[in-house]
Design a binder for these strands. Structure first.
Length: 555
RNA sequence: GGGUCUGUGGCUUAGCCAGGACAUAGCGCCGGGCUUCUAACCCGGAUGCCGAGGGUUCGAAUCCCUCCAGGCCCGCCA
C-alpha cells in the first residue's frame, strides 16, 4: 500500500502548494514514479512559463520533510517524483507478504453473473470469452475485498430447450460411448433443427411445448429440466477445467414457478409506458429506443426479457451491486432491461460487454453445429503442452508432466483471451492459442517457476532490501504498483489490465535474471536480490491466481 | 437505413473514458547470446502520415464533427 499512500500524500501536498483541486498527477512512466503536468495549467492562469512554474513547485516541495524518501525535481515543465531506496525496500518487503495485493474489506454484497450460455450444447470458444472475463473479474473483486456471489443464469425454458426436449422425444439418437453430456445434447439439438427445417409443422409442436411449460405442466417441465440438467453437467465440467467457479446456478423457470414473472408483468402493466394489444409491450421511445420491448406473447407466454426482468428485480433486492458479463449481441436488450428497471424504480445492473469471437470462416452457430468447443480447444492445447513439457523435462514422471501440461494449457487459453480488451472483436486463431511464448500465460508461469527454483536453491538467507541496479529498481517500482493494478481492474471492470500488469512484471524479472546474478552474488547484495526474487515470486503468484492460472513451482 | 463497438508497423496488440515528455509490446523478418540461478529466456536491428479530413487546445493516438471500412444488434429467439 506504499504506492497509494505516497500518491495521496503527494496529491495533498500539490494541492496545498498550487491551490488547484485537480493537480494532474499520473504515473510517470519511465520518467518517474509519479508525475504532474500541473505547470501547463498554471502557466495559462499565471501567464508564466510552465518550466519556471514546475521548477518553483519542485523547489517548494523539496524542502518539505513530509516528503520523506521521495525525490522531487522539475524536468522541463514536468514535476517528477521518484521513490528513494528506503521506499523501494519497503515496497519489496510488502510484496513478500502472503496475500499481497489484497485491498481493504468492503461492505455490501455483489452478485456477478457470467457465462450463462444456453444449455443446448457445449461451451464454445465464444462463450469462454465470457467465462474468462467474468471469472477474472470475480477473482479481482474478491482480492479487492468484496463479498461476492457468482451466478450462472440457466435458461431452462427457452425455445432452444423446447427443441432439445422435442428431439429427445421424437428422434432416436442414443448417446455414444464416452460422449460428454453437453456434446450429446448438441447433437440432438442440431438433428431436431434439421427436422424443423424439413417440416415446419414441428414449430407448432414446439410452441405447444413452451405453452405447457409456462403453465407448469408437470411432465413437460420434467422433460425440459432433465435435458437442461444433462447439458449443464457437461458445461460444469468444462467450467471446472477452465478454473472458473460459480457459486450458484439460477434456474430461469423458478421465476415463473414462484410467481415472480406474473408479479413483474402486473407491475409493468401499471406503467404509463405499457401497452396491451395482442401482446404486452413497453414503449421506451422516451428512453431512446425505437423498438417495442415485448414482455408477453399473444399466446400469453412470457419471453426471455420478462424472466430476465424478474431475475434482475430479485437480484436488486438481495444484493447491493449487480454486474452482468454479456456478449455484444445483448447490448440492445441489456439497455432496454436497464431502462425498464428504471421505470419500475428498481436498481439496474452494471453490464460488462465483450465483442464477438468468430471463426476465420464466419460466426459460430450451435444450431448449425458450426463451432469450436471449449473442450476441443482444451484438449488440443493440452496435447501440445504435453509435447512441450516432455521435450523440456523428459526426466519427470509422466503423471507430473501431464499435470504441468494441463495447467500450462489452461494458462495459455485463459491468458490468450483475457489479454485482449473486451471491446475488441476477435477471430479465433489456432496458432495464437497454441503459442506458449512471450505475451502468453505459460511465459508468466515460467517466470514464476524460475523464481521458485532460485529460492529453492538458495536455502536459508537473511533478508535485506538494498537496491541500486537499473533492473532491481525497475522491478521494485513495478512491484509497488500491484495493489493499484488490482484496484483499477476492479473499478474499471477491465480484467485485461491485470493481464498486462503480470506480463510486464515477468518481462522485468526476466531481464533482471539475465543481468543481475542472484545466487552468485554475495553478502547484502545476495540477500537483497533473494528478497527481491521472493517478492517477485509472491506477486506473480498472486497475479496468476487472480487470473485463474496455476502458479506452477516447476515446469 | 438506424444504433453500437472497432480501425495503431506485414500480422496481433497496449495506451483512448480522466489530452502532455521519444506511441506499448508480441509474432514474423535480419543479426547475436546456453561448460554460468530452468533458452517456455535475453540483447541488438529494420518496419508506424496511430483509417481519412476538419475542428478545439500552448499541446491530440487520446476530446468534438464529418466521412470511409469492418464486426455486432435492430424476432411474439435467447
Amino acid at each position: 500500500m506504499m504506492y497509494q499512500e505516497k500518491y495521496h500524500q503527494i496529491e495533498r501536498m500539490l494541492r496545498a502548494c498550487t491551490s488547484e483541486e485537480d493537480i494532474l498527477l499520473t504515473t510517470g512512466g519511465d520518467h518517474a514514479d509519479l508525475a504532474s503536468t500541473i505547470a501547463f495549467k498554471l502557466a495559462k492562469i499565471e501567464k508564466r512559463a510552465p518550466q519556471k512554474i514546475a521548477a518553483d513547485i519542485a523547489e517548494k516541495l523539496s524542502g518539505n520533510p513530509e516528503l520523506g524518501d521521495v525525490r522531487v525535481e522539475a524536468t522541463g515543465p514536468y514535476v517528477n517524483f521518484r521513490f528513494g531506496p528506503t521506499l523501494l525496500g519497503e515496497a519489496v518487503r510488502e510484496a513478500i507478504e502472503p496475500g499481497y495485493g489484497a485491498l481493504q474489506r468492503r461492505s455490501g454484497r455483489v452478485v456477478l453473473e457470467h457465462t450463462s450460455a444456453n444449455p443446448n450444447g457445449p461451451l464454445h470458444v465464444g462463450h469462454i470469452r465470457n467465462t474468462v472475463i467474468g471469472d477474472t473479474l470475480a477473482r479481482a473483486f474478491r482480492k479487492a475485498g468484496h463479498s461476492l456471489e457468482v451466478q450462472y443464469y440457466l435458461n431452462d425454458m427457452g425455445r432452444q430447450i423446447a427443441i432439445v426436449s422435442w428431439g429427445f422425444d421424437h428422434l432416436d439418437i442414443p448417446r455414444e460411448e464416452g460422449e460428454k453430456e453437453d456434446h450429446y445434447v448438441a447433437r440432438v439439438y442440431v438433428a431436431a433443427n434439421r427436422e424443423i427445417e424439413k417440416n415446419p409443422i414441428i414449430t407448432e409442436e414446439i410452441d405447444h411445448l413452451m405453452q405447457k411449460v409456462e403453465r407448469g405442466d408437470a411432465e413437460t417441465v420434467t422433460k425440459f429440466r432433465r435435458a437442461v440438467y444433462l447439458c449443464a453437467e457437461g458445461i460444469k465440467a468444462t467450467l471446472a477445467a477452465l478454473n472458473a467457479h460459480h457459486d450458484r446456478f439460477v434456474w430461469e423457470s423458478d421465476f415463473v414457478r414462484i410467481g415472480d414473472v406474473d408479479r413483474i408483468v402486473e407491475q409493468v402493466r401499471r406503467l404509463p409506458q405499457a401497452h396491451e394489444d395482442e401482446t404486452l409491450w413497453v414503449d421506451l421511445t422516451e428512453q431512446g429506443f425505437e423498438k417495442k420491448y415485448i414482455l408477453r406473447r399473444s399466446d400469453g407466454t412470457s419471453v426471455y426479457s420478462t424472466r430476465d426482468l424478474a431475475y434482475h428485480t430479485w437480484k436488486a433486492r438481495n444484493y447491493d451491486r449487480m454486474i452482468d458479463v454479456l456478449g455484444a449481441d445483448h447490448k440492445l436488450i441489456g439497455a432496454q432491461l436497464r431502462a425498464t428497471l428504471g421505470l419500475l424504480g428498481e436498481k439496474p445492473p452494471e453490464i460488462v460487454f465483450f465483442e464477438f469471437v468468430s471463426l476465420p470462416e464466419g460466426s459460430m452457430s450451435t444450431r448449425a453445429g458450426k463451432f469450436i468447443s471449449a473442450d476441443e480447444l482444451i484438449e488440443e492445447v493440452a496435447a501440445k503442452a504435453y509435447e512441450e513439457v516432455t521435450a523440456r523435462r523428459p526426466e519427470l514422471p509422466e503423471a507430473e508432466r501431464f499435470a504441468i501440461a494441463k495447467s500450462v494449457a489452461i494458462a495459455a487459453i485463459r491468458y490468450d483471451i483475457v489479454k485482449v480488451s473486451p471491446e475488441k472483436s476477435t477471430v479465433f486463431n489456432w496458432k495464437a492459442a497454441l503459442d506458449f511464448e512471450r505475451q502468453s500465460g505459460p511465459y508468466i508461469q515460467y517466470a514464476h517457476a524460475r523464481a521458485c527454483s532460485i529460492l529453492e536453491k538458495a536455502g536459508e538467507f537473511e533478508r535485506a532490501y538494498h537496491y541500486e541496479t537499473d533492473h532491481e529498481v525497475a522491478l521494485a517500482r513495478h512491484l509497488a504498483k500491484f495493489p493499484v493494478a488490482i484496484e483499477h481492474t476492479m473499478q474499471e471492470l477491465r480484467p485485461h489490465l491485470l493481464a498486462s500488469y503480470a506480463r510486464e512484471l515477468a518481462d522485468l524479472f526476466n531481464a533482471f535474471y539475465h543481468y543481475d546474478p542472484v545466487l552468485k552474488s554475495e553478502g547484502e547484495t545476495r540477500n537483497s536480490r533473494l528478497a527481491l526474487v521472493d517478492a517477485v515470486r509472491n506477486t506473480l503468484k498472486e497475479s496468476l491466481e487472480t487470473l485463474g492460472i496455476d502458479a506452477l513451482r516447476s515446469m
